[in-house]
Nucleic acid binder design. Structure first.
Length: 203
DNA sequence: CGACCGATCGTCT
DNA sequence: GACGATCGGTCGA
């Protein structure tokens, strides 16, 4: 038996975003809104390394109303709307004024599957429920109104239940959908759990 | 205020 | 594997 612990603030601030993205594999993302809990184990992440990363919304120190939250101290949520439809949930990391973030791209569902089916309008559980970042946010009830939420106190939590993923089962790839980033699109900043059916795309 | 574009998804082949 | 839907964020005028 292992106790379940909410990740401490130091988890998000003391290391490079790429290392944290890898460490988030196997952790549990949980939301509790109106007393209803839904959760899943993280099986796919992507690191976005701020000002120096051509794929990041904060590339070149870009600072807008939308990206402002990324410049805060790590350990909070950055949620933005993509393609006008999909709410994408990111974990802000590093110190204040270092706008690093990690996109959570896929989960293996754990708790509240019925509620997730209701939110997504799906009839039955299949691998599409929490495959891909848009689906993850929808299933957990996360939307842009949750941007800035503290990941320890506000209803969205990332937790460690002691589950470990063997190093040999972690695979690195280039990030998805960032061709606009030029050379930076080739960076191996995406982490996936090998052969997990919830992972959003091959290679 | 108008135009362009996107860290995607679901459907169809 | 390919493609169209869809609409807020962003930026230029």
């Amino acid at each position: 038996m292992h106790s379940i612990k909410i990740l401490s603030p130091s988890f998000y601030t003391g290391k490079d975003v790429v290392k944290i993205a890898k460490e988030l594999l196997g952790k549990i993302l949980l939301t509790r809104f109106d007393g209803v809990e839904t959760s899943g184990r993280i099986v796919e992440t992507e690191a976005y390394a701020g000002e120096l990363d051509g794929a990041s919304h904060a590339y070149g120190g870009r600072r807008t109303a939308r990206t402002e939250v990324m410049y805060q101290e790590g350990g909070i949520a950055y949620v933005y709307l993509c393609y006008g439809i999909h709410h994408l949930f990111n974990v802000v990391t590093n110190k204040k004024d270092t706008p690093h973030a990690i996109l959570i791209r896929a989960l293996e569902p754990i708790k509240g599957i019925e509620k997730m089916l209701e939110r997504t309008g799906k009839k039955k559980l299949d691998y599409s429920l929490t495959k891909g970042p848009g689906n993850v946010a929808k299933a957990l009830g996360i939307s842009t109104k949750h941007t800035g939420y503290n990941l320890r106190t506000d209803g969205i939590y990332i937790m460690d239940d002691g589950f470990k993923i063997a190093k040999k089962n972690i695979h690195l790839t280039a990030r998805i959908g960032v061709d606009y980033a030029g050379e930076d699109a080739k960076l191996l900043y995406r982490f996936i759990v090998n052969d997990n059916p919830y992972v959003s795309a091959k290679k």
